[in-house]
Amino acid sequence: MRRFDSGRGRLRGDHVRPLALGGADTDWNVQVLCRGCHRLKDETELGAGWFAAKRQRPRSSALRRKEWLSRKYSG
């Protein structure tokens, strides 16, 4: 898959071989894809269930703190 911009949205960095499958986090393992192509590639390689599991993962402590501060100072 080498469609760099299908015109369907913002561009995203993508690991050619996903980190979850043992890919390296190097410049040589990165390509730029539009959001739709990136998601299609991930679903093809990792499976649609991977996204559902990702959404169920607990949020990071930094994100929880940011949300807490936002509620505290919102008014």
Rank of each mutant, 00 (worst) to 15 (best):
R3Q: 15
K66C: 07
Y73D: 00
G47I: 05
D14W: 09
K72A: 02
H38W: 09
D27S: 05
G7R: 13
R59T: 10
G7V: 15
S61Y: 06
R65V: 10
R57S: 14
R35F: 02
S6V: 12
G49I: 10
G23N: 05
L46G: 10
G23R: 01
K54E: 07
L21C: 03
L33T: 02
L33A: 08
D25C: 02
R71M: 01
R35S: 13
R35P: 05
A24Y: 00
Q56S: 15
A53L: 10
R35E: 12
R39N: 08
S6W: 10
V16M: 01
T44H: 11
P18V: 02
G47E: 05
R35C: 01
M1Y: 15
W50N: 11
G49V: 12
C37Q: 08
L33E: 02
H38M: 01
R57N: 11
G75P: 02
R39G: 06
G75D: 05
W68Q: 10
E43L: 04
W28D: 05
R3V: 14
H38Q: 09
K41R: 13
D25S: 07
R3L: 12
P18S: 03
L63V: 06
G23Y: 03
S74K: 10
Q31F: 00
G13C: 07
A20Q: 07
P58N: 09
W28Q: 03
P58H: 08
L11Y: 09
L33Q: 02
W28C: 00
L69T: 04
Q56N: 11
Y73A: 00
N29M: 00
L19M: 00
E43Q: 12
D14H: 15
R3C: 14
R55S: 12
S74R: 10
R71N: 01
G23E: 06
M1K: 15
K54W: 11
A24G: 02
R59C: 00
A62P: 05
G23F: 05
V16F: 01
L33G: 01
H38L: 04
C37Y: 08
R10I: 13
R17A: 05
G13E: 11
M1E: 15
D25F: 02
L19A: 00
